[in-house]
Design a binder for these strands. Structure first.
Lengths: 167, 167
DNA sequence: CAGTATCCTGTCCGATACTG
DNA sequence: CAGTATCGGACAGGATACTG
């Protein structure tokens, strides 16, 4: 499934999934954001088979999300650190967390984001940076970008805004 | 893999992945947001095998993200519509799109979000609704929530904020 | 501690053919 | 059109044993 070709490979969502589509990848990134760095930390916290962990870590390194950093020469020891690209993944994790908290935690939230200045729980929302408006607002629409090919253009640009277009 | 038990199943991210962890699920949701509703529309646009599409659609319906809606009795015809829970998934898609656009589209962006009032491209950011601050700001930290169990508490609450805690 | 080496199973997924 | 029925391959992932 490494280089599977989804319907439209121009789509940035599909391209993202090529890198983090496997179950464990996102959980490893989550743990990396929580400060885990060493093989053994991941292994223990995730309960993942070591061979699988090796494969997933390698894939994440190859995709440029993590980088191996040697912190000891004798014996040779590496730790796995988030790259800038890996750190940019944070909004996806937050969005998944918020969605999970909202819909799949009948007992209540187990993990939240907190504003450490006020102690208040943060409420994650996706907004447009310039206007501050939530992107769920109907004024926002997906459109073909500058590099859109013919197919993408047809998919996103061709039709007028119909009721099912957004929301 | 249906009911696999990840390391910590309290984690809302892991719970989310239980519902949308498969490759096709997220692409189907993306298409649903783009207005696709009928089996054949998904099939054609994704290039997915029909049997697989049936399984994924069923899984999404079972998870409460889509619902079958009969729009014709003779012959019986169903369409798949986003439920409120499915619509709440939008931020995840936007986050994946933004990340893909930023890192995996050397030719430029193929799909963007546009403010239809101004025609300007939106820049998606995750913020705290109350303060409007980006959640990447170091004042925000993940913490155990009200329903956190002992293990989650140890993972998130136990340690003081170290340099690797956030970022 | 940080992996590698094997073996095995489940299932995701593609391809093709068929049905009301 | 909206699926169901099979078949088969690839690989994610588990389990266990082993190494520098």
């Amino acid at each position: 499934m490494k280089h599977k070709s989804f319907g439209n490979m121009q789509c940035p969502i599909a391209r993202s999934l090529e890198r983090v589509g496997e179950w464990w990848s996102i959980l490893i990134l989550r743990d990396a954001f929580n400060g885990l760095k060493r093989f053994d930390e991941f292994q223990t916290n995730l309960g993942i088979a070591p061979a699988m962990l090796t494969r997933r870590l390698k894939a994440l390194v190859d995709a440029g999300l993590l980088e191996k950093h040697r912190y000891s020469e004798h014996p040779p020891r590496d730790e796995y650190l988030l790259t800038p690209r890996g750190r940019d993944f944070q909004p996806v994790l937050i969005a998944l967390m918020a969605w999970g908290n909202a819909h799949f935690t009948p007992e209540g939230k187990s993990v939240i984001v907190v504003d450490t200045r006020t102690g208040r729980e943060a409420e994650p929302v996706m907004v447009d940076r310039a206007s501050g408006l939530p992107l769920s607002d109907p004024v926002f629409r997906k459109m073909p970008g500058p590099a859109a090919d013919e197919r993408t253009r047809r998919r996103h640009g061709g039709r007028p805004a119909t009721r099912e277009q957004r929301q």
